[in-house]
Nucleic acid binder design. Structure first.
Length: 276
DNA sequence: GTGCTTGTTGGCCA
DNA sequence: GTGGCCAACAAGCA
């Protein structure tokens, strides 16, 4: 499930529940594939007794910092979820990691196990964290950067290119469709064929969708919204894209669904025309 | 049973 | 070496 804003939502949920608290006990599901590359028993032994100091999110990744230079990196894959439960939570079928504090328990659940958990020890962030591309809302995400990337991936459909994390960190399937729909560009349009003004529109809508998604999904302040997605306005494609017979909220015309770039893609043909 | 699913990676091929 | 495409990973849901 999680794209940029959902990831931030999950980070906040763990953070606000347990920042400053000590991890009294840790439960791991030793055979869970999300621990690939990391020894779950070592992770368990390392985290026990440590205090959660801070956290951050970038792209679809999260990083939780604990005392003693310990860092927990989490990627939620397709179906991962972080939630908070009572202090005596008994792990359920897909709960692969549980961190117990005196007040609650932090639970990582992921049925499909496309997610990933890793441990890092050191005084600074792990190398892989530093390799995440500049955030879309950062000054480094420039029109030139986008133009160069689209040129390099010139023959690929734009939809597929928007999913590439090297340039568009945090964008996933629904955000890509939302951006293309707002920018009024066809998902199959070859990335290298965009006009200057189309690239500019694309760049602007990337930033716009990221900004609004963070606000609506992850919340404004330090508070965590009660639920994911409850605040998404009806004017977004998001609210219509999975409905049978769904209509474009701007034109009222039918939406279509088709696989583009290996992913189910939704668009409004009335707004998004393919240029040849 | 069938055919999907908000992600990423590695292998193949041009 | 680079870029484009696709299967694979695994489990649940309609």
């Amino acid at each position: 499930m999680p794209e940029l804003a959902e990831v931030e939502f999950f980070r906040k949920r763990w953070h606000s529940a347990a920042v400053g608290l000590q991890i009294k006990e840790v439960a791991v599901h030793p055979s869970a594939k999300i621990f690939r590359g990391t020894d779950p028993q070592k992770l368990k032994a390392s985290l026990k007794g440590k205090k959660l100091l801070s956290s951050k999110a970038a792209a679809k990744q999260m990083l939780f910092r604990f005392s003693s230079d310990l860092w927990l990196g989490i990627h939620l894959g397709m179906s991962g979820d972080l939630y908070v439960r009572e202090p005596d939570h008994i792990p359920e079928k897909h709960d692969h990691l549980v961190l117990y504090t005196r007040r609650n328990s932090l639970v990582l659940t992921d049925p499909r196990m496309f997610g990933r958990v890793r441990l890092h020890v050191g005084s600074s962030v792990p190398d892989w964290w530093g390799n995440i591309a500049p955030a879309i809302l950062s000054p480094e995400f420039t029109i030139k950067r986008v133009t160069d990337f689209l040129t390099r991936r010139g023959r690929a459909p734009l939809k597929a290119v928007l999913l590439m994390q090297q340039c568009f960190p945090g964008i996933g399937n629904w955000m890509a469709d939302e951006i293309l729909w707002r920018a009024a560009i066809h998902p199959k349009q070859p990335a290298g064929s965009l006009t200057t003004s189309e690239v500019k529109r694309l760049w602007r809508e990337c930033r716009h969708v990221c900004r609004l998604a963070l606000k609506k999904i992850a919340g404004d302040g330090s508070d965590v919204p009660a639920d994911l997605n409850v605040n998404i306005p009806i004017t977004w494609l998001f609210r219509h894209r999975w409905k049978v017979g769904g209509k474009c909220p701007r034109t009222g015309t039918p939406l279509v669904h088709e696989e583009v770039g290996g992913r189910t893609t939704c668009w409004a043909p009335a707004r998004q025309k393919l240029r040849t």
